[in-house]
Amino acid sequence: MDSVLEELQSIFREVLDQPQLNLTRESNSSNVDNWDSLAHINLVTSIEKRYKIKFALGELQELKDVGDMIDLINVKIAAK
């Protein structure tokens, strides 16, 4: 499992209170239970803290699934 995906899975499990959640690159708010608007804010801020990065709203609005999020995280980590 990709290391970022593995870490995101841990974050998603905690934030969404789903200890058995299996996150994939294809996961999105339509196919993951409880991924609603406030949970989304909690996910984003948890990810920002974990990787010490900041997202712009426009960047987040372009993401269609977890795979896109992983790619964006990797870009930001590389740019640090």
Binding site: I41, V44, T45, K49, K54, F55, A56, L57, E59
Partner: peptide, 11 residues
Amino acid sequence: VFLSEAYQRLE
């Protein structure tokens, strides 16, 4: 102690 610009979240 924490500010997240994207959704204007403060902690």
